[in-house]
Simulated scan of single mutants.
Amino acid sequence: MRALAAAAFAGVVVAVLPATAALAADPKPDIVVTSATDKASYAEGETFTITVTVKNKSSVDAKHVHYTGGDSEGVDGIVYGELSTGFDLAAGATKTVQLTGKTNHQAWRYGRGYVAFELTAENGEANDADNTTGVALLVPGAFDDLSGYVFQAESHDATWTPQTPGVPGVKVVATTADGKTKYAEAVTDAKGLFRLAHLPAGDVLLTFTAPAGWKIMAGENGEHDQTPAQISANEGDEPSIFVTAKKVAVSSPSVSPSASAGPSLPVTGDNTTLIVGAGAVAIALGVALVLVARRRRVHLQA
Rank of each mutant, 00 (worst) to 15 (best):
A261G: 11
I50M: 06
I31Q: 12
L300D: 10
K55S: 12
N123Q: 10
Y110A: 13
V16Y: 04
V281M: 15
L205V: 09
P168F: 00
H105Y: 04
P228E: 06
H198S: 15
S260R: 11
S58M: 05
K171I: 03
L83K: 03
V290L: 13
G134F: 02
T34W: 06
A278W: 06
P200I: 12
A6K: 10
E223K: 15
V33I: 07
K215V: 00
R295Q: 13
P211L: 10
R112D: 02
F194L: 09
V298A: 14
T175M: 02
T176M: 00
G92I: 07
S58F: 04
K180M: 10
V14H: 09
Q230H: 14
V292I: 11
V75Y: 07
P211F: 06
G148C: 08
T85I: 04
A21M: 15
R296A: 09
S260T: 12
T181K: 11
A90Y: 03
D189F: 03
D225L: 00
G11E: 08
N127T: 05
S58Y: 03
G236I: 09
S35T: 08
Q301R: 14
T244P: 09
A8L: 12
T51F: 08
D88E: 10
G45Q: 09
A302V: 04
L265M: 08
V12D: 12
L99A: 05
S35M: 04
V32Y: 10
R112T: 01
V13I: 15
A249W: 06
V115Q: 05
A284C: 01
D128M: 05
K246H: 12
V14G: 15
R294I: 14
T164R: 02
R297N: 11
V79L: 11
A25K: 09
A245F: 03
Q163N: 12
K247V: 04
D203V: 07
A3K: 13
I231Q: 06
